[in-house]
Design a protein around this nucleic acid. Structure first.
Length: 113
DNA sequence: GGATTGACCGGAA
DNA sequence: GTTCCGGCCAATC
């Protein structure tokens, strides 16, 4: 079926679906999302999120190392605090998520390979 | 059709 | 610890 204009493309749908399955209190990096999907790249995931991420818990997707999305750090930090996500730093300004504890393994995700 | 952008990543200085 | 560089992939102009 041809993708209609204005609607997310197949790749975008996979990204959104996976992000929507991330449990509260957990998080994933853009690179991890791409890896779990078995394709694309961290940058591609960021592009999709920027365009179609408005309908999913985008704050659960962070940059490598747990750094919050650039430009939305304050917004994401607030959401994580509300959910109880383990946060590090804070007073230094470089707020980041403790991926060591809250990194989701994607057990409920479909295995492509 | 091509060229540019962007909520990125990893390594090196 | 920080700062700089190129590479990666999809969406958009």
């Amino acid at each position: 079926v041809p993708s209609a204009p204005g609607l997310p493309s197949p790749f975008a749908e996979e990204v959104l679906d996976l992000v929507a399955r991330i449990p509260p209190g957990h998080a994933l990096t853009y690179g991890d999302v791409a890896a779990l999907l078995g394709g694309g790249g961290a940058r591609a995931v960021g592009t999709v999120m920027a365009r179609f991420g408005g309908g999913v818990p985008w704050w659960r997707v962070v940059r490598a190392g747990g750094l919050l999305p650039q430009g939305l750090e304050a917004e994401a930090a607030r959401r994580h605090r509300a959910e109880g996500t383990p946060l590090l730093g804070g007073d230094t300004g470089a707020l980041r998520v403790d991926l060591r504890r809250c990194r989701w393994r994607g057990e409920a995700a479909v295995g492509p390979p």
